[in-house]
Computed example of a mutant assay.
Amino acid sequence: MDDLTGFQRDLLYVIASADQPSGQDVKEEIEEYYTTEINHGRLYPNLDTVVNKELVEKGELDRRTNYYAITDTGQRLIQERREWESQYIDF
């Protein structure tokens, strides 16, 4: 996960928390956290990056709508990240 941007890491968390969200679903959820509009030129290239790294799979809901789902590799990286963070933050 060390080669991902913070935004890409946040996309993984959003996708992992939902059941095959569409790109629009991901956009709406991430905008709530960032409190600013995320344009398509930022969102979709970053989604493509996590898909190309095989952390997320991309499928087709219909001819116009894709879905995204976390892969086993993506889940493993999230778990590793959480374990790493817990070394430094103990609440």
Rank of each mutant, 00 (worst) to 15 (best):
E37H: 06
D19Y: 13
Q87G: 00
G6Q: 13
E29C: 05
H40I: 06
L77H: 11
A16T: 06
V50E: 02
K58A: 14
G23H: 11
L43S: 07
L47K: 10
V56N: 04
S86A: 15
F91Q: 09
R63W: 05
S17T: 04
D62H: 11
A16D: 10
D90M: 04
E80P: 03
V26H: 09
I15A: 07
N39F: 03
D10Y: 12
N39T: 03
S22K: 07
T36Y: 08
Y33L: 09
W84H: 00
L43V: 00
Q20D: 13
D10L: 14
Y34I: 00
R81F: 15
L61S: 02
L4S: 05
K58I: 13
M1S: 05
E29H: 01
V14Y: 12
R42A: 06
T73R: 11
G6V: 10
E54F: 04
R82C: 05
V51R: 01
R42E: 08
Y67T: 14
E37I: 14
F7K: 05
Q79M: 06
W84T: 07
S86N: 13
D48Q: 08
V51F: 03
D48H: 06
G41Y: 08
E29R: 12
L12F: 05
D48P: 05
D19M: 12
R64L: 12
I78A: 01
S17K: 02
T35K: 07
R9I: 09
R76P: 00
P21M: 08
T73M: 02
Y67A: 08
G23T: 05
Y33F: 11
G6D: 15
T71P: 00
D19E: 14
E29W: 08
L11F: 06
K27R: 15
D72P: 01
Y44C: 13
G41P: 08
D72N: 09
S22Y: 10
F91C: 09
F7W: 06
E80V: 06
E54D: 04
Q87M: 09
Y68M: 02
A16C: 07
K58R: 14
A16M: 04
R82E: 14
D90Y: 07
Y13M: 10
I89D: 10
Q20I: 10
Q20E: 15
E28V: 15
G41C: 09
N66T: 07
Q8D: 07
G41D: 07
N52I: 12
E31A: 06
V51A: 02
I70Q: 08
N46K: 02
E83A: 15
L61Q: 09
E60H: 04
F7L: 09
N39M: 01
E32T: 03
Q79R: 11
T5H: 03
L12C: 00
Q79P: 00
I70L: 09
V26W: 05
G6A: 09
Y44K: 14
Q8V: 10
S17F: 01
E80F: 03
G41V: 03
L61A: 01
G41I: 06
E37W: 05
